[in-house]
């Protein structure tokens, strides 16, 4: 890893928010989604020291300078930032769209100050074969990127991503070859066919290899802590939207069970909208979209008129609060709970 001279490259940053050079490093105040593109083409790994305040998610990826950045595109590589100081190591080869000429990007999602204190980078090797070999190895052992759609399919493990060879194609052929070899070997040695033994040997070896890779990829992606308090799990464990999780927990703690809740959140952010109403159940809850005479809730089950709402959970909304509502609790300036006094 080489130390990157941050002040020297600061002018090359592309960002969707104002950047500040301070004694601590490069600073940005994230509100919603903030994108930073680093002027470091030809980098395979980054290690960054940071300081963060508030629940923030950092997504990293590779930008080709043309395609619009979609941080949640598969494989979605993200890290939850801890409050205070921290260090992250990011393998850019494991993120989508990596090429020798792409630039790394960071996307901050949440609310709060983020300071990039120090940055170290590992450049790509000069040898093309070494680049491809490293790329294949990085993707083979990349932790599973869990997102909203992982429920539909896990990332396909690649034996050689550069050549498009699936791991399980290799293991399947290995299973067949090993089974045939054991079958013929036993026939030659013992003079009789032992298909069950050959199948068991072939299957066990191939499946165990697959399971080994699966475990290596999935265990780092799982939350294996022991947390007995359900409220803490809601607050802390919404892995890919920590701010929404924190607000959901805050709203649960703030609102009475009989209060009727409207969620003010842009419709494109379906995840947060649904997350709030789900976690506030069995309270009555609807999506308080502006201009609607009647608001509907999850799956259209509940319906409330605007004047029936007792409380508002507002998240990343640009809409003003309806008259008569005041903030009573907040996670950030645009993540708060309001109710009628």
């Amino acid at each position: 890893m080489r130390e990157v001279d941050l002040p020297a490259i600061a002018s090359g940053f592309l960002a969707t928010a104002e950047l500040y050079r301070t004694a601590q490093g490069i600073e940005v105040f994230a509100d919603g989604r903030t994108v930073l593109v680093l002027p470091l083409p030809g980098t395979q790994e980054l290690e960054l020291d940071y300081q963060a305040a508030g629940p923030t998610l950092l997504t990293f990826g590779n930008h080709d300078g043309v395609t619009e950045i979609n941080p949640t595109a598969r494989p979605w590589r993200y890290r939850r930032l801890v409050n205070g100081r921290g260090t992250l190591r990011l393998d850019l080869r494991q993120a989508g769209g990596f090429t020798v000429s792409t630039r790394p990007y960071l996307v901050l999602q949440g609310t709060g100050r983020f300071t990039l204190a120090r940055l170290r980078a590992r450049p790509l090797p000069a040898d093309r074969e070494a680049v491809l070999e490293g790329f294949d190895r990085a993707l083979l052992w990349a932790p599973n990127a869990i997102d909203h759609t992982t429920i539909n399919l896990l990332e396909t493990p690649m034996w050689s991503a550069s050549r498009g060879i699936h791991l399980y194609a290799v293991l399947g052929v290995a299973f067949l070859a090993l089974t045939a070899a054991v079958l013929l070997g036993l026939r030659a040695l013992r003079g009789r066919w032992r298909p069950r033994l050959a199948l068991a040997a072939g299957a066990l070896a191939a499946v165990a290899a697959g399971d080994g890779v699966f475990l290596a990829k999935v265990l780092p992606a799982l939350d294996l802590s022991v947390e007995l308090d359900p409220e803490a799990r809601i607050r802390e464990n919404y892995a890919f939207d920590p701010q929404a999780g924190a607000l959901a927990a805050l709203a649960r703690a703030t609102l009475r069970p009989d209060e009727r809740v409207g969620v003010a959140c842009p419709s494109y952010n379906w995840y947060a909208r649904e997350l709030f109403c789900f976690n506030l159940a069995p309270r009555r809850c609807v999506f308080a979209d502006p201009g609607q005479p009647v608001h509907a809730g999850l799956s259209g089950v509940d319906r409330l008129r605007p004047d029936e709402l007792d409380a508002i959970v507002s998240f990343q909304s640009d809409e003003p609060l309806p008259p008569g509502f005041v903030r009573v609790a907040q996670v950030g300036p645009r993540a708060f709970v309001a109710r009628r006094p």
Partner: peptide
Amino acid sequence: TFTSGNAGLVFWVLPAV
């Protein structure tokens, strides 16, 4: 069925068995 890894190797092993 065979190579995505979501079903492991079961559909390789099943027909062989």
